[in-house]
Design a protein around this nucleic acid. Structure first.
Lengths: 207, 207, 207, 207
DNA sequence: GATGAATGAGATTTCATTCAT
DNA sequence: CATGAATGAAATCTCATTCAT
C-alpha cells in the first residue's frame, strides 16, 4: 500500500524537477532555444523520460504557464485579504504583480509569450482552456475591484473594464521595459518608478 | 545610362520585397519559426538570392528593427511639431506610438523582441549599435519633453526619467495586452482605453 | 550486466563502421568531395547518427589520420625488433612504410593530406596536437636509427636528420608516384623499384 | 587589320590574367576551396567572363597543370644541353625539378594533384590527353638519360625504368615533405638534403 | 564580348521525437 | 517505468553555372 503512495510521490517529485529545470532554462533563453536534451540533463533523467511525464515540448511550456498563473492568482487573492479601500486594493494587486515578477521572474518570461505564440504551439484543448481560464481570472479579479470602487464612488473614469486594462497595461509595460534592460541602461529603478506611476494613476482616477 | 539606374531601382525594390515578406511573416509567427525558404517563396526569389541582399537571417531581422525604429522616430518628431504645451506634447508622443502600432503593426511585433532575444542573435556590431542608438533616441525624446515640462512647471513627479519610463510603460503595456488579444476577448477598445489612461496620467502628473 | 557490455561493443563497432566507410570514400575521392550523406548511407545509419559519434566532418577525418599514424608507428616498432644492423633497421623501416601503404592504403591517402590541408580544417586543438605528435614520432624513430648507425660507424653522410629525411622522402615519393598510377602506366613494379632504391641508397650511405 | 590583332592579344592577356590569379589561389588553398568568384575578383573580370575563356572550373585547373608541365619540360630540356656525363645529366634533371618547385611552386602544388583527383574532374578528353602526354614526356626524358647511362656503362642497377622512377620518387618525396612543412619544423634544409641524397644515390648507382 | 544578379541543388548540422531493450 | 541511441525532417548557408541585358 505504502509502496504505491511512495511511487506516486516520487513521480510527482520528478515531474516538478523537470518543470523546475525547464522554467529555469526558459528564463535564460527563448522557449525556442531550449532543447529537450538540456531539460533532461538538468533534471537528471533520460530524454525519453520527459515523454513519460509530458506529451511533448509544448506541453511542458504550457504547464509552466499554468503554474505561473496559479501563483499570480494566489498572490492577488492573498493581497486582497482585509483591504477595504479601493485605492489600497488596486495598489495591492499592483504590488502582487511586481512581486510575481521579482520572485517568480522565470514564470513571468514564460507567461509573456502566452497568447502571442500560442496559435503556433500544439496544445491539448484541455490545457489551453485551463490556461485561458486562469488568465481571465486574474483580469476578472482586477476588474471586479475597479467596478466595486466605482460603485463605492472611490474610483472615477467611466468603464471599469477600460480602467482595469490600463492599470494592468501600466504594470505589464513597466515590467516589459525592465525585463529588456532599458531601465538598467538608463539607471532607472523599477520599484520607484512603479510606485510613482501607481500614485499618479491613483490621483488621476480617484473619485 | 538609364539601365544602371533601373538596375539600382530594381535592386532596391527587391530588397524591399524581401523585407516586406519577412516582416509579414514575423508578424504571424515568432522570428525563430520563420524559415528562409518561406521568405524566398513569398518574395518569389530563390533562397540563394536572399543571401545576395542580406548576410544571414539575423540581418534581415535586424534590418526590420531598424526600419521600424526609423518610422517610430519620424512619427514622434512629426507629432512634436508646433506643440507647445507639455500635456499636448506628451499626448502627441503617445498618439505617435499608437499610430505606429496601428499602421505599422508588423514592425511593432518585430521590435518587441529587441533586447529580449538579442543576446542570442548574431548581428554585426555596426548594425547592433545603430539599433541601440535609434532605440535610445525614442526614449531620449520622451524624456526631454518630460524634463522641459518639469522645468516649465507643467509637470510634477520628481525624476524626469522615471516619469518618462512610466509613460512609455503604459503605452507599451496597453499595446502588449491588445496584441495578445485580451482586449478583443473582453470587448475593450484600445483607442478609448489609451485615451482614458493618458487623461488619468495627465491629471496625476500635472503641476 | 552483459547488456551494458554488448551495448559498448556495438557502439564501438558502429564507430568503426563509420570510420571504415569514411576511409574508403576518402581513398576514392578528395576529402572535400566526400559527403556526410554518403558516409551515412555506406555505414547504413542516419545522417544524424554520424553526429552522435563525431562532432563534425573534420573530426572524422582527423580520427582517420590518427588511426593511420598509430598503425604506422606500430608497424615500425614491430619491424625494429631484433634488428641489430643499421642497414637492416633502415630496411625494416622502409618495408614497414611500404607495408603500411600496401595493407592500409586507404589510411595512406588520408594522411597524405596532413599538413597540406590542415590549416583549413577546423580541429579541436587536442586532436591536432595528438596528430602532430604521432606524426613526429615516426620521423623521430627513423632519425634515431640513422643517428645510432652513424655513431656505430655503419652510416656516413653527415647530418642524421638530413639522411633520415631523404630516406623518408624516397619512400614517400615512390608511393606518391605509384598511387597516382604512373608505375602501372609504365609497367614498373613498386616492390622491385623500392628494393633497388633502398639498395642503392644503402650503398651510397654505408660507412 | 590591326584591330583584330589587338583584340586577339588582349584576349590572350586576359586569359593569362585569369590563370595567374587561379594559380596563385591554388597555391594557397586546395583546389576545392578556390571559388570562381575569387578568381573573377582577382582577375578584375565578371564571373560570367570566366566562362567565356574556360568551359568550367575544372578546365581552368587542367590548364594550369598543362602550363606547369610545359615549364617543367622546358627546364629539363635546357638543363640537359651540353651535359655529356650521365651523372651530370641526372643531376641536371634533379636540379631542374627543384628549380621548378622553387620558382614555380604554385604550379607544383597544382600538379601534385594530377592523377590523384582526375578521375573526379570533368575534363575534355582532348585536354586530358595533352596533360597525360606532357606528364609522360618528363618521365620519358629521365628514363632516356638513365638508359643511355646504362648503355655507356656509367650507371648500373638493372632496369632503366625502375632507376628512373626511384630518382624521380626521391625528388618528388623530398619536395612533398618540404611542402608540408616538416623540413622547417625539424630545421632541415631542402637544398642541402637533396644534394646529399643525389650524391648518395649517384654513388649507389654508379657503374 | 562582357556583365553580375539570380538560381537551386546540395552541404553541414540540429533537435524533437520514437522505440527496442 | 526508464533509458538513450537512433532517426530524419528541416534549417541555414554556399557556390558553380546560367542568361537576360
Amino acid at each position: 500500500m505504502g509502496v504505491k503512495e511512495r511511487r506516486k510521490r516520487e513521480k510527482e517529485q520528478r515531474r516538478q524537477q523537470i518543470l523546475d529545470v525547464a522554467r529555469e532554462l526558459c528564463m535564460r533563453k527563448s522557449y525556442f532555444e531550449v532543447r529537450m536534451e538540456e531539460i533532461a540533463e538538468g533534471a537528471e533523467v533520460a530524454i525519453g523520460t520527459l515523454y513519460l511525464y509530458f506529451q511533448n515540448k509544448d506541453e511542458i511550456y504550457a504547464t509552466l504557464c499554468e503554474e505561473g498563473l496559479d501563483i499570480l492568482n494566489r498572490l492577488i487573492e492573498e493581497a486582497l485579504q482585509e483591504k477595504k479601500d479601493s485605492q489600497a486594493r488596486l495598489e495591492a494587486i499592483g504590488r502582487s504583480y511586481l512581486t510575481f515578477y521579482a520572485e517568480y521572474g522565470s514564470y513571468y518570461d514564460v507567461l509573456s509569450f502566452v497568447g502571442m505564440g500560442f496559435k503556433q504551439i500544439g496544445l491539448s484543448r484541455e490545457l489551453e482552456t485551463r490556461i485561458t481560464q486562469k488568465s481571465d481570472a486574474a483580469i476578472a479579479r482586477l476588474e471586479t475591484v475597479v467596478r466595486e470602487g466605482m460603485e463605492a464612488g472611490e474610483i472615477t473614469g467611466g468603464d471599469s473594464k477600460e480602467v482595469a486594462f490600463f492599470l494592468w497595461g501600466l504594470l505589464e509595460g513597466l515590467i516589459f521595459i525592465h525585463r529588456r534592460g532599458y531601465m538598467n541602461a538608463w539607471s532607472v529603478d523599477l520599484a520607484s518608478t512603479s510606485t510613482k506611476a501607481m500614485d499618479a494613476i491613483n490621483r488621476g482616477i480617484s473619485g
